[in-house]
Design a protein around this nucleic acid. Structure first.
Lengths: 327, 327
DNA sequence: CTGAAAGCGCTTACAG
DNA sequence: CTGAAAGCGCTTACAG
């Protein structure tokens, strides 16, 4: 039986209202405040947050929906969001969808049931397209991936430009047959493919791309199939960190050396990309900035609900390493 | 203004109690059930979880307190815990303490305020020792790190044995001057040091250990200082994945090659340890099993509160790679 | 099977 | 500054 506010009130010889005022920012005389604080310590009282949220109609809760917290991109993002929430004295409800639209729908319902203050959300393409028809009682800030135009605030990077930069870099290093491997669940992968395609075309190179599930296994498999075909590529561009890992493992397993047998470049400056062989050339994303910016947008939106939706585009940084060198 | 249970009741022409029964497992006639379900769809009603938790006195919430979700050990642990919670229709409140005892104390208070059903907790040594004097209204299962003997359920690995195994492996490969680098915040690091020390002594080797903050920077620095001293070691054992990363980076930066200049072995089979140079020899922990087992213990404890506390000891697996080979 | 009523533990106008 | 009272949105005995 946890002690309640009435027990504290009784112990301090005051009303429950006064205890509540001591806990909050109400006006309380120094005398009563001391007595209440002593009673709180003596009883070990801890306010019931469910009751507080219900009564005050503020959950002080941020929802965060990502595909998988094991993806370092989202791990870092979540820490940035949590640290910002912590500073604002809010908590975070974190949900992993595994890129599964059914789970996304379920978690969106959960967010409504939690009466969250705001949502930070990296939707799959399937769910993003449904977003236009959905109506929430809280603001939504999209991160990493976009949704229907002009409805929600969003923080993304310049995916088109970043992918083009990778292609240009590889082409400058003498690679012309550049195979592109992209995820098939996010707007982000689509934009990266567009950038890849545009840069290839601009240089008179023939685009050669494939979309697969954005995980290491599927990427490794797709690469294997492509290499088994004729007219082998001399470089590969990969659209996220997990897929890049799958490709790198597959190359190693096949006894192929980078960049001697095949140049390689991709997204996400994960720990291992720096430590491995000649190092992997990647686009580093300002992940923590993305998280902080999303929280900033959310707080401004709460302050000014009628403001027009904003899209903040951050820039990735090319980290050139050995893997993109000449064959 | 979100719609409430009364709105649904009115729309369906029934009482709020009946709507509540349809939502839960109450007995409701097929006719009324259909009408209520139609009304829920029509109104887009979502129950308010704060109200439900307050009234039902069940939060259906598991607390999870770890040092840092960016540590892959805890990332994987948290996914295992969340997946198990999801299956049991419970949510998880995740907290990062950054090994800071003040933050731990704050989050322990938060857990009480959330009236959580149970807690899964990897305490720092400072907080663990205070655990004996603390009284919670929910069961606590310790993971990865232990607390005062015989009070809480716990899931750990055989740290003593695993560390000894690393020493034996290095010694079998001809290394005798084995420097040990251990974290200074966890019982786990202490146990690993004990195992290291015991194995060294058993072989007539002189222990040579240091305790530092369990992060990459501090580990790199400590290694640098040790190498600057005389009588250089010919191998290093490191007590966790993040520290191992710091050590590996420092070696690379110093132009030292593994195992030629210095053999290396440690804990946590992280992605990069497999991909790097000759591969790093590590103890792989059954992380997901640790998480699942912790949830199992928690659920059994909820069923049988009076059972004697249990400690489940899982076993790490030695993954021998090139880094521990002969000089 | 169904409804009216009480109450979970707080906060917040309202009076004083 | 302080207290008595109402009420947040549900669930759950209690009657019928």
């Amino acid at each position: 039986m946890p002690v309640g506010i009435k027990d504290v009130a009784q112990a301090a010889g005051v009303s429950a209202a006064t205890v509540s005022r001591v806990l909050g920012h109400g006006p309380v005389s120094a005398d009563l405040r001391d007595r209440v604080e002593a009673a709180i310590r003596a009883t070990g009282y801890r306010p019931n947050l469910s009751a507080r949220r219900l009564r005050s109609q503020h959950s002080r809760t941020i929802g965060l929906i990502v595909s998988d917290i094991r993806n370092p991109f989202f791990t870092t993002l979540s820490r940035a969001v949590e640290d910002a929430a912590y500073r604002a004295e809010m908590r975070v409800v974190l949900c992993n969808t595994d890129e599964n639209p059914d789970r996304e729908a379920m978690y969106l319902r959960l967010m409504q049931e939690e009466r969250i203050t705001g949502l930070i959300y990296a939707p799959t393409r399937t769910s993003a397209s449904a977003l236009a028809r959905m109506d929430f009682d809280f603001p939504v800030v999209l991160v990493d991936r976009t949704g229907p135009k002009g409805i929600h605030d969003a923080v993304v990077i310049d995916n088109h430009g970043a992918a083009a930069q990778l292609v240009d870099h590889l082409a400058d290093n003498g690679h012309g047959r550049i195979f592109g491997l992209f995820g098939n669940t996010s707007s982000t992968a689509v934009e990266r493919h567009d950038g890849y395609r545009a840069a290839m075309t601009a240089r008179g190179l023939a685009p050669d791309a494939r979309f697969v599930a954005p995980n290491d296994r599927a990427a490794a498999e797709a690469l294997g199939e492509r290499l088994a075909g004729g007219d082998r590529p001399d470089a590969v561009v990969v659209s996220n960190g997990l897929m890049l890992l799958g490709v790198y493992r597959a190359l190693k397993a096949a006894g192929l050396e980078t960049p001697r047998d095949l140049a390689l470049a991709g997204f996400d400056n994960e720990t291992w990309t720096e430590l491995v062989g000649p190092g992997l050339t990647v686009i580093e994303q300002p992940v923590a900035d993305i998280g902080r910016t999303a929280m900033d947008l959310l707080f401004e939106r709460l302050r000014l609900p009628e403001m027009a939706p904003r899209k903040v585009v951050l820039t990735g940084r090319l980290v050139a390493r050995g893997s993109s060198g000449r064959a």
